[in-house]
């Protein structure tokens, strides 16, 4: 095939894939606002995505905060700016590291799990079976995951923020001999509402992206075990990339003019 045709072909395929994803997203989202709602399923997903992700997200946040404090100290001590460390830690965690790290960890944990579960249901005809039992698979399988993902990730990130800041505090006080009360008051001093809320908005977007990519790839998987494997990988990779890209875009929007 000549190179031009190849480029054209690839481009068309990309457009097609984007269109399919767009259609799926629109369809799934519209079902989020129409009855019936499967509250039991939503509750189960809230537990799966939120509660059971706490250890992973907590540990990630703790060590991120600790490393952040250590690195800031080794940098800032060069020009006697150690007093800025609490502010740097709290702003970095709430604005960026909390949501992004939590998002990526949950993408690995939950995106993969959703894709594998729905993918297996697809190839073993369980999704077809749902339809024949008068249950819309979009409403029963996808909507609960999208809702739970979008609602629960901000909560996870809030926890991650607190644990991350605590990690920084721990390193500064225990290892670098900061005064504990000073550290806390300095953390609060420059912290604005927006720093935290912007991170939570991001988290909601990331939660939606993770659940969406898991559902989309799982729901449309083909073939047998191999197809499910491919769906799982794609779910994690696409969710992670979309998280990073949308993080940049959202930062531009949320902090426009500042």
């Amino acid at each position: 095939m000549n190179p031009l045709a190849l480029i054209g072909h690839t481009f068309l395929e990309f457009l097609q894939a984007t269109g399919r994803l767009g259609y799926f997203t629109a369809r799934a989202t519209s079902h989020c606002f129409r009855r019936p709602f499967y509250f039991r399923q939503i509750g189960k997903q809230l537990l799966d995505i939120g509660y059971f992700s706490l250890p992973v997200v907590g540990l990630t946040a703790l060590f991120t905060g600790m490393v952040l404090a250590l690195q800031s100290h080794s940098g800032f001590s060069r020009f006697d700016a150690e007093s800025a460390i609490p502010t740097v830690v709290v702003l970095s965690i709430t604005r960026e590291l909390g949501p992004v790290m939590a998002g990526l960890m949950v993408a690995g944990r939950i995106g993969a799990a959703i894709a594998a579960e729905l993918g297996t249901m697809r190839v073993t005809e369980q999704i077809d079976a749902l339809t024949t039992l008068s249950t819309n698979p979009y409403k029963y399988l996808i909507v609960p995951r999208l809702i739970a993902g979008t609602l629960v990730l901000p909560l996870l990130v809030l926890v991650a923020d607190i644990i991350g800041v605590f990690g920084g505090f721990l390193v500064c006080v225990a290892r670098l001999h900061f005064n504990a009360a000073n550290y806390i008051s300095q953390s609060w001093q420059y912290l604005e509402h927006r720093d935290v809320t912007s991170g939570l908005w991001k988290a909601a977007a990331f939660g939606f992206i993770i659940a969406l990519m898991g559902c989309y790839n799982g729901f449309n998987s083909k073939g047998g075990a191999q197809g499910v494997g491919t769906a799982t990988t794609n779910a994690v990779v696409t969710a992670s990339i979309l998280i990073l890209v949308s993080n940049y875009l959202l930062t531009g929007i949320l902090f426009a003019g500042k």
């Binding site: 249901m121 073993t124 369980q126 077809d128 079976a129 024949t132």
Partner: peptide, 12 residues
Amino acid sequence: FGMLFQGSALFD
């Protein structure tokens, strides 16, 4: 309709 699938398709 009620349908029995060839591969059973039970919800595991």
